[in-house]
Amino acid sequence: MTNLLEVQNIHTFIGQFHILEGVSVDVLQGSITVLLGRNGAGKTTTLKSVMGLTPPSQGQILFAGEPLQGRRSYDIAAMGIGFVPEHRAIFRDLSVAENLKIAERCKGDLARKEEFIFGLFPDLKRLIKLPGTKLSGGQQQMLAIARALVPDNKLLLIDEPSEGLAPVLIEQMITAIQQLAANTTVLLVEQNFVVASKLAERYVIIEEGRSVKKGLMAELVNDQETIHRYLGAA
């Protein structure tokens, strides 16, 4: 299998702060890879660097062999990368239907994907006319992911999908991400280790702006020392 995304030793500054000091991540085509690490380690900044929101000053990012540096975020999105930011980044002034419709890259995208999306998130079909302001936190998170599924994205970057969700919704979210991963490669950031271990096949641990360890998730779950050392969780 080939790498769909290759992040090679990137350094990113936000203002004068050196946030990423050498992060390398390989995402295999068709896989789910998770970025793990403590708060403030640089996981979200890595996703934002891929999207061109915080462009790296050194290193290289390749998507399907194409370099992403120097491209604007709208160009990167148009190449087939969907980003689901944390904090349920929907458009609250638009209805559920409008939030989905706005994500169309080609005419008819939504019509083609409707069945798949509403199959993953049946609640959204019921709430289709409701404005974003009236949705609960979980519904907003589902809408944010559903929106990234409307166009034909090759890669989905999902930041903290389980953040602030009730346990029953987390299970629903895990099932949804597993189903969508059948067609799309996923790179996600997840603080909840249990969720991460259920979802991902591969992991990359980021510590103080550096990628320090990577491998198969199946091996990590049995490696208590690494979990304690880098994630502080059992």
């Binding site: 604007r72 980044a89 002034d93 638009l94 929106r147």
Partner: peptide
Amino acid sequence: SPTGRVCIATRENEGRAQMLGYNT
């Protein structure tokens, strides 16, 4: 219209609209 909806999205959060692939 679709253009108007992107204008509303731009007002709400320009970065998010760009992340969907729109040159705002």
